[in-house]
Amino acid sequence: MEVFAYQGLIGLSSAMYLWLVSAGLTIIFGVLGVLNFAHGSLFMLGAYLGYTLYGLAGVPFGLAVLGSMAVVALVGAGVERGLLRPLYGLDPSYQLLLTFGLVLFLDDLAKLVWGGVFRIPPIPGWLQGSVSLFGRPYPFYNLFLIAVGLSVGVGLWWLFDRTWWGRAVRATASDREMAAALGIRTPTVFSSVFMLGSALAALGGALSTPVRPVAPGIGAAMIVQAFIITVIGGLGNLRGAFAGSLLVGVLSSYGTLWFPEFELFFIFAIMAAVLLVRPQGLFAR
């Protein structure tokens, strides 16, 4: 029983990476209608930048995370303005193809720049240590992750529900032309949303560096998980992304315990079951 609860808590903390990534994916899809296959690569980029700044250059951890978010947000803006914008209004297949091409490009680029093998930098001093939960030491860093994930959730709710910018974004998402007619600058909204989504992916990536190895493949692994979350939670709503992330995070954690060989397959099986029983996703309204 205690093993069960403890393993659930471990899953909860890894669910937070998933949440940060799928939140960004969801926001971008919800507003721009673009399903960004390269979103996992932005996570990977965030991880590499965080690692480089903090682990190699010795920048304080908090600053390294912020710096990585800023750079990846700029990359996101460049992708949106330079590459995606010419494709709005065309068959959506072309946007998918473009972002898919970006995955190939960015993953291999990371290999070119950062090479193959990596060490994990130490957890920063102020986040080291553990608390005792269910008779086992639970890393303080995991609690920190959960706190960050929840704060991001609250922050996003505040941003979209309580600010002028959020209203502009929601107006743009529901009717682009109407929003433009109301004087909202929709291209700016698009760019800012893409930057926010990218920054969230980078946040997840940078936060993962002290505890998970960074490698070129982590982006693709992440996007597949984010897609599974999307299927389970329902496409395009943040609540579904959050619930889906928790579900997938916690279940994979049990999966590694129960079927160490087939953890990922276990999650796929759940996804297939959701597709059969509730194709619109568990948390879609």
């Binding site: 190939l104 490009f105 680029l109």
Partner: peptide, 19 residues
Amino acid sequence: VHWSLVLGAVVVALVLGFR
């Protein structure tokens, strides 16, 4: 060895310029 890099760049270029 960076074949994927080329592959990805070509996909992007084709989508943007030579559909």
